[in-house]
Design a protein around this nucleic acid. Structure first.
Length: 420
RNA sequence: GUGGGCGUAGCUCAGUUGGUUAGAGCGUCUGGUUGUGGCCCAGAAGGCCGUGGGUUCAAGUCCCAUCGCUCACCCCA
């Protein structure tokens, strides 16, 4: 038997209500902030991600789903959304049509990593991008939106961490300072961090090795080497968050992995999902559009992992979804009435009732058991002497009361049930 | 790419120091008088014990390999 590819998951019917609910909350809150949905293809030319995310990052070097198609073009299943959105914006000159584009998305993403709790090869993210302004109010808005969505899903064990990466020049200067500090400690660092010293020195702050952490305690911090403008922006972001009553921590060691981030970066962590605790992350990416060969447009955005969020909801038992039910189950008393029963169900269904009936020619008892299993509000019996009199029997399943109804009056039961 | 844990019914799991026809709960199906659910009761179906090899008189149980799942590392949402 063929099974789903490693790291992919079927979302079965008993889970789908949770997904619908989350998607509903996301669109609702996004649209309150006047973000418009954008959908982009699941795959793009490989170079889009290679240039956008950064050639040296692990995502590009070993974690992308990349294929050569029949026209010898290298294509890649999108590992994240920002590069695609910026591409679409430039391609359709959305920035010429209005100064600021506020966009959101809910979409599958793909990364060829080893799966673990809250990490899959096909996973789903929602997120937002505000492109066309360097106003720090938008940096803060990203955090507000993300936080409000998570709160609306009933999550409580949340930590918001923010930091500023400043502008590329000051970051490069700072990297040199950090390099100077670390050089004498180099041989005491873990093997992984020695590699990071070459590839992505900032990430040594994230090292889980105890000794590395000790060394990094006294390391100079990026936030101490920001230019005045960056500090001022960061200050504004903090003020808005305070005003929005969003609890946050400044984490000078928070360094996002992707190359394109500038100024504000943030993460929202959950204490209830295991090792992969970041539910969402984002930040400002003022240089990205230009880096992709488009016009220079500042932007800010975030992305949130849906599987992780639903895992957190499950562990915190925070989603209180109503139990599902159907309006009416149509019970056939006589086997000969299959067609009549089906025709009747059709009328009811076309009048917006959620109706089920037996397709397996089962006994009345079995049909009733099924009606109960589906949580039917009403059962409609068709057959017997009532049917000969052109009547059907309607039973209220909560109090057991029954009444005969003439088929001519079917519209009254319909309105009665819908009217509840 | 690296390391740990685990693979027995649809699901969650028992299965003694290797020893007859592999079990339970839940779920499914059927019935418990003519045409009525939940609760209860009775019965039934459903297992190459992940796969392949080995040790043994004898393997679900021990050994090896392999595949899969899972958690963690790297990296990252």
């Amino acid at each position: 038997m063929i099974k789903a590819i490693t790291g992919t998951k079927d979302i079965l019917p008993d889970q789908i209500a949770r997904w619908h609910y989350l998607e509903m909350i996301v669109s609702y809150i996004m649209e309150c902030f006047n973000y418009k949905e954008i959908r982009t293809p699941v795959f793009e030319e490989t170079s889009l991600f290679a240039r956008g995310i950064g050639e040296a990052t692990d995502i590009v070097s070993k974690e992308m789903y990349t294929f050569i198609d029949r026209s010898e073009t290298s294509v890649t299943l999108k590992p994240e959304m920002t590069a695609s959105v910026v591409r679409a914006l430039n391609e359709h000159s959305l920035d010429k049509k209005q100064g600021l584009n506020k966009l959101y998305y809910i979409s599958p993403m793909f990364r060829q990593e080893r799966p673990q709790a809250g990490r899959y090869r096909q996973f789903h993210q929602f997120g937002a991008e505000a492109i066309g302004s360097d106003n720090p109010a938008l940096d803060a808005e990203m955090i507000v939106i993300a936080y409000d969505i998570l709160k609306s899903l009933g999550l409580n064990d949340l930590t918001v961490k923010i930091n500023s990466l400043g502008v590329p020049v000051s970051r490069e200067n700072y990297k040199n300072i950090l390099r100077e500090y670390l050089t004498p400690h180099l041989k005491n660092l873990s093997e992984d961090s020695q590699k990071r010293f070459e590839t992505n020195i900032l990430r040594i702050f994230d090292s889980k090795a105890e000794n590395d952490q000790k060394i990094m305690e006294d390391a100079p911090l990026l936030i101490e080497h920001l230019d005045d403008n960056s500090l001022e922006n960061f200050e504004k972001v903090k003020q808005i968050l305070l005003h929005a009553q969003i609890p946050f921590e400044i984490d000078p060691k928070l360094v996002r992995g992707l190359d394109y981030y500038t100024h504000t970066t943030f993460e929202i962590l959950s204490g209830s999902v295991g090792s992969q605790s970041a539910l969402c992350g984002g930040g400002r990416y003022d240089g990205l559009s230009e880096q992709l060969g488009g016009t220079a447009i500042p932007g800010v955005g975030f992305a949130a992992g849906i599987e992780r969020i639903l895992l957190a909801c499950e562990n915190e038992k925070s989603l209180d979804l109503p139990t599902e039910s159907i309006d009416l189950y149509l019970v056939r008393l006589d086997k000969e009435l299959q067609n009549a029963a089906y025709n009747l169900s059709l009328i009811l269904r076309r009048n917006d009732l959620v109706v089920e009936l037996d397709y397996l020619q089962r006994s009345v008892k079995a049909q009733m058991r099924e009606a109960n299993k589906f949580n039917a509000k009403y059962v409609l019996f068709i057959g017997g002497e009532e049917y000969e009199r052109n009547e059907v029997v309607l039973k209220n399943m909560s109090d057991g009361e029954q009444q005969n109804i003439n088929l001519e009056d079917l519209s009254t039961i319909i309105s009665k049930i819908i009217g509840e």
